[in-house]
Design a binder for these strands. Structure first.
Ligand SMILES: [Zn+2]
Ligand SMILES: [Zn+2]
Ligand SMILES: [Zn+2]
Ligand SMILES: [Zn+2]
Lengths: 162, 162
DNA sequence: AAGTAGTATGTTATAAAGTAACAGAAAGTT
DNA sequence: AACTTTCTGTTACTTTATAACATACTACTT
């Protein structure tokens, strides 16, 4: 599972495989059931380093038989609760977690141009936010941090286009 | 416009008045039109220090005559673009900006218990996020930071309840 | 003042995202 | 096998948001 910004997309199968292996391990350890449907959805989500909409997933499922929204959303609920995927609030979309099982906030960088997404895990950011909240007497339970902008690749292309 | 966490809600008219005055000034300076409808919606949003849903606003408008979603959403678009309100992505809701006209990221703390919301403006957090993104070669355009947890008031009550 | 361009609002219909409720199937337990 | 729990299918619906077009209002030009 290489870093999204540096993943050479012709070798991206590695990422999918790694994600599935990690998922299997996590489910074994936590006695969760990684059923065919759940594995399927997780695989679909990992097909790219981009967030995927619930109805995109549904559409794909429907090409291989009947399927309805609850099927997708229930599966997403499982994946979210088990920490295998995160939800991107600013886009109503879902993406695979790069560190399932590890305690982390799920902060992301997302490219406005190519939509590639990277989960960043900066302890400094987490601490700064905790400190800021603390100054207000606020008890932090969850930090949602979604940073949009330009990924390195698109940035370069923008430069070339001058 | 006192800090949300410390606003004594029986004197909250001050906040509404301050917000409207600030809005008038901003619209005058930027040659934007603060029409009756826009003023109305902005006032409704400022009735509390809590985020308000578009359909909540619609419902209120409908008590005083006909109204349809586009009316609300267009008005919200204006208020968002002029920087008079922000959107809370994690809750599909809208809240009044405490610093319209000033350049800032619109980071918020939101209480999971009473839903009171405070806009924080920590230059440290902004810088940390910029620095983290920079380490990836990522160019930041917008930071969405929404921190949920317990506000000081609800925290106290939780303590008393022991 | 009348004409006109631009902006704002009304109206109808529809899209997109998410959930409730119940039925049936599959997997685990005794 | 009988029972319990968990997972999936299905239908119907709620919530959030937008497209498209009609009308009204404003501000400026002549
Ligand atoms: Zn990859
Ligand atoms: Zn993660
Ligand atoms: Zn107040
Ligand atoms: Zn603000």
């Amino acid at each position: 599972m290489s870093q999204p910004f540096s993943c050479s997309h012709d070798q991206h199968d590695h990422c999918v495989d790694a994600a599935l292996t990690a998922a299997e391990r996590l489910c074994r350890e936590q006695r969760l059931r990684l059923t065919p449907l759940r594995r399927k959805i997780l695989t679909l989500i990992w097909q790219s380093h981009r967030p995927v909409g619930a109805y995109d997933l549904l559409e794909i499922l429907q090409k291989e038989g009947r399927a309805a929204p609850p099927t997708v959303y229930r599966t997403l609920d499982f994946l979210l609760e088990s920490g295998l995927v995160h939800r991107l609030a600013t886009r109503n979309a879902y993406f695979g977690c790069t560190r399932p099982g590890q305690d982390h906030a799920g902060h992301v960088l997302i490219c406005e141009s190519c939509h590639v997404l990277a989960e960043i895990d900066s302890a400094d950011v987490v601490r700064q936010i905790d400190a800021s909240a603390d100054a207000f007497g606020f008890e932090v339970r969850r930090q949602t941090v979604e940073v949009s902008g330009l990924c390195p690749r698109c940035r370069q292309e923008a430069d070339h286009a001058c």
